[in-house]
Simulated assay, not measured.
Amino acid sequence: MTTNRRTLLLAAALAAPTVKTAWGQGRVTLKLGHLANEQNVWHRACLKLAEEAAALSNGRIEVQVFPNDTLGREMDLINGMQLGTADMTITGETLQNWAPLASLLAVPYAVTSIQQMDAVAGGPIGQQIAAEIVTRARVRPLGYFARGPRNLTANRAIRTPDELNGLRLRVPNVPLFVSVWQALGARPTPMAFGEVFTSLQNGTIDGQENPLALIRSANFNEVQRFVNVTEHVWSWIYVAISERRWQAMSAADREALTEAMRRTQAYERGLFTEDERNLEAELKAKGMTFVPSDQQAFAAKARPASIAGVRAEAKPLLEQMLATRA
């Protein structure tokens, strides 16, 4: 290459606009994909996260939010986060595929109130779970959102485990859920969610269990008369970032994103509390009757099956969770 040619190339490079690296002090773009729709509390909270992250970083951090699995399903996103091809998602017990302690996010009657959930998720137990997720799954929980408790719907009131009396109950294909409901006295039947309404309608099953949001969105009020308030699973779900992305960020941007998540978590709690009240009122208006259940009786009968159903590595921490109920 001639001297004149080198001079021209250097001049062109100096004249071109400077492009800062994505993970230096320049602009940081994070794509956050999740499964919820635009009306969901989680999606609205993620938009708040984007707003706070931009404000706290003087516009350096842009969180782009993609609902409805438009970036891919949960497992696809987790795999991408591990490889460095995806940035963020909302995820929970699915992480047990890599980190056994993540199974503790949804153990029946391990947590029996939102206050206990906060004590667990935000305390030393939650820190141990999150640390294992970082080490083994290579994704980093930034904070957590509340999930509505799962309740049992049926066409009869059920206040105690004895009143289950062989109820044919749809459950997700989760072995722990099957064993716990068997121990409680039901006849659990794993079934895809899309088949539940028709199965309730034609009498193939007698009941199902889900949070109020899904009971409403699936129109189960049309085929079920009672919401039996068992609240048998209180759980949380993480907003997580790829550990590769996190390690590549500057200390200042990590601090900004952490504070943005802290504010978002508090914001989401307000949305969640209001949403649960509205869901109950709406389902009652649609004709469903809410029946208080003897949750202590359910919890006591479920406990042996819950402990037996988790992996050996998770049992000591589950015992600690159960002790926080006292």
Rank of each mutant, 00 (worst) to 15 (best):
G148A: 10
G148S: 12
G148M: 05
G148L: 06
P149W: 00
P149G: 02
R150K: 13
R150P: 00
R150N: 03
R150I: 02
R150L: 09
N151T: 06
L152P: 07
L152N: 04
T153L: 13
T153F: 13
A154Q: 05
A154T: 04
A154G: 07
A154S: 14
A154W: 12
N155K: 12
N155V: 05
N155S: 11
R156P: 03
R156D: 00
R156T: 00
R156C: 01
R156M: 01
A157E: 12
A157T: 06
A157F: 10
I158M: 06
I158Q: 07
I158R: 11
R159W: 01
R159V: 02
R159I: 00
T160A: 05
T160E: 04
T160W: 04
T160I: 02
T160H: 13
P161F: 03
P161M: 02
P161T: 03
P161G: 05
D162Q: 15
D162E: 15
D162H: 11
E163G: 13
E163D: 12
L164Q: 07
L164D: 08
N165D: 14
N165I: 01
G166N: 08
G166S: 04
G166H: 09
L167G: 11
L167S: 09
L167K: 12
L167W: 11
L167F: 11
R168I: 02
R168P: 06
R168E: 00
R168K: 14
L169K: 08
L169V: 04
L169D: 01
R170N: 14
V171T: 09
V171W: 02
P172C: 02
P172K: 06
N173M: 14
N173Q: 15
N173E: 13
V174I: 15
V174F: 14
P175E: 03
P175H: 10
L176I: 14
F177R: 13
F177Y: 15
V178L: 09
V178E: 08
V178F: 13
S179R: 15
S179I: 03
V180P: 12
V180H: 08
V180W: 05
W181Y: 15
W181K: 13
W181Q: 14
W181M: 15
W181D: 04
Q182R: 15
Q182G: 06
Q182H: 06
Q182C: 02
